[in-house]
Nucleic acid binder design. Structure first.
Lengths: 107, 107
DNA sequence: GCAATGTGCTTGCGTTCGCAAGTAATATGT
DNA sequence: ACATATTACTTGCGAACGCAAGCACATTGC
């Protein structure tokens, strides 16, 4: 979904890593099999040869669309059906406070 | 701490696993090095030869006491100093609701 | 122009974990 | 009583992950 909403449906590996809150190596290792099954592909930047974009292919976009159906259904089942907007605001606020107050760098 | 507050400072491996929310194999593998450094030891039940208790040794009890100092300080730093009783009640309530509402078995 | 520094990425290594299968002991049903 | 099922534990295996090192390229400062 990060890729889907990114311009050109692509992100550099480090940028994707940041958004997924995982290390760069994890992105490298996640991308490989996804590339093999054709849902993403690799692109280089002509300006900066270091960059290796992860790009959603046409097939990948379809997969995301399919997945979103399930995702939305499940998320809706919990949050939309059982939680009010007020509940979610409260939970979100408390969790953000917890992250802010907790020691270490949880960002 | 689970062991510390258990009767005789000991628990069977599966019971400890449940309280720690990890699998039995994890307890087996955690116990081994702790045994090696002498903070826990192994005991058998004379009634049921399948049971293999994890027991806190004297040295283990001391370690727990030491650790609790840090633990209490850190926990206090976040929760006692920055959070009111009311905040904690709210967060706890919301998280329990989330667990209850979420799909799967998060117990 | 070029050395020093920084950035993006990959890979080897070690850690942690759960599952599934195997073993041993106990509980249950007839 | 004894076969079957259940329970407790261990271990092989594979998955996932981060760190540190290494490489290629880019940027900065002189």
């Amino acid at each position: 979904m990060h890729l889907e909403q990114a311009p050109l449906h692509r992100l550099s590996r480090v940028e994707l890593a940041k958004r997924m809150h995982v290390s760069a190596s994890t992105v490298t290792r996640m991308a490989a099999p996804l590339e093999k099954i054709g849902v993403v592909s690799r692109q280089t930047d002509e300006r900066d040869a270091r960059l290796a974009f992860v790009v959603l292919t046409e097939s990948g976009l379809e997969k995301v669309d399919e997945a979103r159906v399930t995702f939305t259904k499940q998320a809706g089942y919990v949050f939309r059906d059982r939680w009010t907007e007020e509940d979610l605001k409260q939970l979100s606020g408390l969790l953000h406070r917890l992250i802010a107050d907790a020691p270490g760098n949880l960002t």
